[in-house]
Nucleic acid binder design. Structure first.
Length: 492
DNA sequence: ATTCCCAGCGCG
DNA sequence: AAAGCGCGCTGGGAAT
C-alpha cells in the first residue's frame, strides 16, 4: 500500500498509522494463531475476554475520600519533617552534616565509614552486597549510639513510603484510576500501575491502613471476596493429581490448614479433636512470639516454595536448626510436596515446560540445573492457577451480575465490587461466591477453593473504633459450599 | 536537563 | 555457605 503523506492532514495521518498497525497485527495473528493448540487458544481467548471487565474497572476508578487523604498527607508530612529534624541533629553531632534516610550511599558512609560499625552484607544473585536495608539497620541498632538513629531512619522510610501512595495524583473527579496489565506477567497474574495519562498508581500493593481512603460511591456499598488459602490448595492438588497424595489438600478441607499441619508436625501436644480447643493449642507460643500455628503457616508456605531452612530462619528470626527440624517434619507429614519438587526438577530437565490445571503453559528458558529456575517453576503452577481462578470468577461476576454490581479492583486472590445499598447484600454475596466457586475433579477427588465475603463502605478492614465503615466479614456462609465442604471433611 | 539503574519496600 | 516467586514505584545518584 502506498501512502502519499503530503495529501493527508495530521488527524488522518494518525488514522492511517493506526490502521496500518492493525493490519500488521492481523497479519501476525494469521501466522501465529496456527501455532496455538486448544489449551493455548482457550487461554488466549480468555485473556481477550478479560479486556472488557478490565477496561470497565480502569474507566470507573476507585473513589477517594479527599478529606481522609488530605488529613493523612498533612499528618505524615508533619511527622516526616519532625523526624528529619531529629535525624539531622544527630547526624550533625556525628559527622557535621545532615543525613538522607533514603540514600543507601550516605547511610553506608555514615554507619560503616564515620561510625565504624560492622558492615552488613546481603547475598543476592550469587554476589554479596553492602546493605543498609531494614534488616541491616536492625542489626546496627544493638549499638548504643546507633539505636536512636536507626529507629529514626526506619520511621522516616516508613512515613515516606505511605506518603508516596497518598500523594499519588488522582483524577479531576476525585477518583484513582489504576492501569491493569492483563498480559504483563510470567504467571498470568495481572499487574497494576500508573495509567496512560500519568495519574493513579499500583493499586495491588496498598497497605490495609491506607486502603481506608478508598470508598464506595454514594448509594453503593463495597463487597470483597478473597480466595481462602488458594495457593496452598493448588499445591495440595498437584500432590494429589501427580502422586495420589491427598494429605495436604485434605488438611485444608479439615477446617484450618495451619492447625492441621501443626497436628501432623507436633502430634504430642495433647490434641482433642475439637476445633476450638485445638486452635487454642495451636495458638500457644512455640518460640519468641511465634505460635505453633504461625510456624506452620509461614514455614509451610516457605517450604512449599523450596525456601531453605537458613533463609526462613532468618526471616522468622529463629535458629536455623529449628527450621531444619520443622521442614523435615513438614515434608514427612506431606510427602507429596518434596516429591512434587523433584518432579518439577525432572520436568525442567526433560521438557522445560509446565502446564497448569487451567491449561496455561510456560516454557522455562533459565538453566534447568539452576536452583533459581527450579524455584520459578515450583512457584509457577500454584501462583498462576490462583490468578486464573480469580480472574475467571471476576469475569463471571462481570458477565452475570453486571446489572447489579460494578467491579472496582482486583488484588490477585481478591476481587472488589460495589452494589446498590438497597439490594440484599447476603443475596449478592451468595451469588458472587457461587460464581467464583470453580471446581476441578480427578479420580473421585475434588479441588474446592472457598471464598470469603466482606462488605463495608471503605476498602480498609473493619475496626469498631478506628474504622467502623471498613470491610467486615459477612456472617452468611454459602450454605451449598459449606455443606459440601463439611461432607467432604467427614468422608476424609 | 533527561535517562537509566539500583536499592529498598509495599502487596499477593 | 546458605536466593521462596510474582509484580511496580520512589528517590538517589551516576551517566548521557
Amino acid at each position: 500500500m502506498k501512502i502519499d503523506s503530503s495529501q493527508i492532514n495530521s488527524d488522518a495521518g494518525r488514522q492511517v498509522y493506526n490502521t496500518l498497525d492493525c493490519c500488521l497485527t492481523h497479519e501476525i495473528f494469521g501466522k501465529i494463531s496456527k501455532q496455538l493448540d486448544d489449551n493455548s487458544r482457550l487461554i488466549y481467548n480468555f485473556e481477550r475476554a478479560l479486556q472488557a471487565p478490565v477496561l470497565e474497572m480502569m474507566e470507573r476508578g476507585f473513589r477517594v475520600d479527599q478529606y481522609e487523604r488530605q488529613k493523612g498527607i498533612a499528618s505524615l508530612r508533619e511527622q516526616a519533617s519532625h523526624l528529619q529534624f531529629w535525624l539531622d541533629s544527630m547526624a550533625q553531632a556525628i559527622w557535621g552534616a545532615p543525613l538522607n534516610a533514603q540514600s543507601p550511599k550516605q547511610l553506608a558512609a555514615f554507619f560503616y565509614g564515620t561510625m565504624r560499625l560492622p558492615e552488613q552484607w546481603k547475598y543476592e544473585k550469587g554476589s554479596r552486597k553492602l546493605s543498609t536495608d531494614r534488616e541491616a539497620l536492625e542489626k546496627l541498632a544493638v549499638y548504643f549510639y546507633a539505636r536512636p538513629i536507626v529507629d529514626t531512619i526506619l520511621e522516616i522510610r516508613n512515613v515516606k513510603k505511605r506518603l508516596s501512595v497518598l500523594e499519588t495524583e488522582i483524577d479531576f473527579d476525585g477518583r484513582m484510576r489504576t492501569s491493569y496489565n492483563i498480559a504483563g506477567t510470567e504467571t498470568g497474574r495481572w499487574s497494576s500501575s500508573e495509567n496512560a495519562f500519568g495519574t493513579g498508581t499500583n493499586l495491588q500493593n496498598v497497605t490495609p491502613e491506607l486502603r481506608k481512603i478508598f470508598v464506595s460511591d454514594p448509594g453503593f456499598k463495597l463487597l470483597g471476596i478473597d480466595l481462602e488459602q488458594a495457593e496452598s490448595r493448588e499445591v495440595g492438588w498437584q500432590c494429589g493429581v501427580l502422586f495420589g497424595d491427598w494429605s495436604y489438600l485434605d488438611a485444608a478441607y479439615g477446617g484450618d490448614l495451619h492447625t492441621l499441619a501443626c497436628k501432623l508436625i507436633w502430634p504430642q501436644l495433647g490434641w482433642t479433636g475439637e476445633k476450638k480447643a485445638d486452635r487454642t493449642i495451636a495458638d500457644r507460643i512455640f518460640y519468641r512470639g511465634f505460635s505453633y500455628r504461625d510456624m506452620a503457616k509461614r514455614g509451610g508456605h516457605g517450604s512449599n516454595y523450596l525456601g531453605t531452612p537458613f533463609t526462613m530462619a532468618r526471616h522468622l528470626k529463629v535458629p536455623t536448626k529449628l527450621m531444619e527440624t520443622f521442614q523435615s517434619a513438614y515434608f514427612t507429614a506431606f510427602p507429596g510436596i518434596p516429591r512434587w519438587h523433584r518432579w518439577t526438577a525432572q520436568q525442567l530437565q526433560q521438557s522445560r515446560l509446565l502446564v497448569t490445571p487451567f491449561g496455561r503453559r510456560r516454557h522455562f528458558f533459565g538453566r534447568p540445573n539452576d536452583d533459581a529456575t527450579l524455584r520459578e517453576a515450583i512457584a509457577f503452577v500454584p501462583q498462576s492457577s490462583t490468578g486464573d481462578r480469580m480472574n475467571l470468577g471476576l469475569w463471571r461476576i462481570w458477565k452475570y451480575m453486571r446489572d447489579r454490581v460494578q467491579l472496582i479492583a482486583q488484588v490477585h486472590d481478591a476481587v472488589y465490587f460495589q452494589f446498590p445499598e438497597h439490594l440484599d447484600e447476603n443475596e449478592i454475596a451468595r451469588e458472587a461466591l457461587a460464581l467464583i466457586d470453580i471446581r476441578l475433579q480427578h479420580n473421585g477427588h475434588e479441588l474446592i477453593v472457598p471464598g470469603e465475603a466482606k462488605s463495608g463502605w471503605n476498602w480498609g478492614n473493619y475496626d469498631a473504633e478506628k474504622n467502623p465503615n471498613g470491610l467486615k466479614k459477612i456472617s452468611i456462609s454459602t450454605p451449598d459450599i459449606r455443606q459440601r465442604l463439611d461432607g467432604l471433611a467427614r468422608i476424609l
